[in-house]
């Protein structure tokens, strides 16, 4: 009986191990299938359009819009998928021209492209995205024919957006800036145009900064409201830092105490007590934990009482700040 039980357990373990082996190898098997077992694309060289415009088809080879001969995995792409009025054009090529998607309105272009490309990018583009509000359509950024660039963008550069946002390009040339010029980041790293995008481009922007600068992110026991003001329409980090570039160090909007004084001014007691010492030094010399503190609600350096002002906390005057 025991022997049978052992054998049964052994069999179960063997099945488990076999299952585990299959599961661990499944991604490789799927990848291999995807690489080698799928049908090839063939060029639709029989289409009537190509009798005259054969060079156009060549420019689509290897791109998302390569013409298909019939349906491939449920997708069929032919000239008339995008260009309408072709029948009239066939009858009289000089008199009637097929439609040009790049002349469509924002909504009409989004609908045309959306008949195949339904992505979060498009969803956002037709809702509250600033580009849609400014009536820019898909073809303002993307070029379909004779284009081998990523995402069929008109230009493959990391700072492509600055070809329109020339004013922003200038910001990246200031004293401190994010490393866009050196190609270490791209515009879309922060301004998500893909599935991570918020329903408004700038909403929740402070969450975006924390993707890289997590070390300054909360939560803290004592939050600095401007850092974590819980607003959905901006605010947060960008209240003190100019994200693209700044004429000051560390992307700060103003040098020295200016950033703090923009909201706090100079607290009156800093001007009067201890011969105005509090107004003579940089705010952050004492308020070191300005992003947020786990030690005190004034964001003071937890070591302040032992390093800078040794007797402040012991004197009985400032023991209430902790």
């Amino acid at each position: 009986m025991d022997y049978l039980l052992i054998e049964e357990v052994g069999m179960k373990n063997k099945i488990k191990s076999e299952m585990r082996r299959i599961l661990t190898r499944a991604p490789l098997i799927i990848a291999a299938l995807l690489l080698f077992a799928l049908p090839a694309f063939a060029q639709d060289d029989g289409a009537a359009c190509l009798d005259c415009h054969d060079d156009v088809a060549d420019g689509l080879v290897g791109t998302t819009h390569q013409l298909t001969n019939g349906k491939i995995n449920g997708i069929q792409i032919e000239c008339t998928s995008c260009h309408k009025n072709f029948k009239e054009h066939l009858e009289d090529a000089m008199e009637h021209h097929p439609s040009r998607p790049d002349t469509l309105s924002m909504l009409a272009a989004a609908q045309l492209c959306g008949s195949c490309h339904v992505t979060a990018h498009q969803t956002a583009m037709v809702s509250t995205d600033p580009h849609s509000r400014a009536e820019l359509n898909c073809f303002s950024c993307h070029k379909i024919h004779d284009n081998k660039n990523r995402y069929l963008l008109k230009d493959d550069k990391d700072d492509y957006c600055t070809s329109c946002h020339t004013n922003v390009k200038a910001e990246f040339s200031q004293r401190s800036s994010h490393p866009l010029e050196s190609g270490n980041i791209r515009c879309i790293d922060c301004h998500h145009q893909d599935s991570r995008k918020d329903h408004q481009l700038t909403k929740g922007f402070d969450w975006t900064c924390q993707e890289c600068h997590t070390d300054y992110a909360g939560p803290y026991l004592y939050e600095h409201p401007v850092v974590y003001n819980h607003l959905v329409n901006g605010g947060g980090c960008t209240e003190c830092h100019n994200p693209h570039g700044s004429p000051n160090e560390r992307l700060l909007a103003q040098p020295g105490n200016g950033v703090c004084e923009q909201c706090h001014g100079i607290p009156p007691l800093h001007l009067t007590m201890h011969a105005g010492l509090g107004a003579k030094v940089n705010c952050v010399n004492c308020h070191t934990d300005f992003h947020g503190s786990n030690d005190n609600k004034y964001f003071l350096d937890p070591m302040l009482g032992t390093t800078f002002f040794a007797n402040c906390y012991q004197s009985g005057c400032h023991d209430n700040v902790r």
């Binding site: 002349t103 309105s105 924002m106 909504l107 509250t128 939560p219 004592y222 819980h230 329409n233």
Partner: peptide, 27 residues
Amino acid sequence: DRTASDSDFVATDNMSHAGYVSYDNPT
């Protein structure tokens, strides 16, 4: 939107309504 923090035991509520009217003559 409601964002609540355990550290200071407060919550922030946000409500937003936005409407747009557009006219578009493509060319």
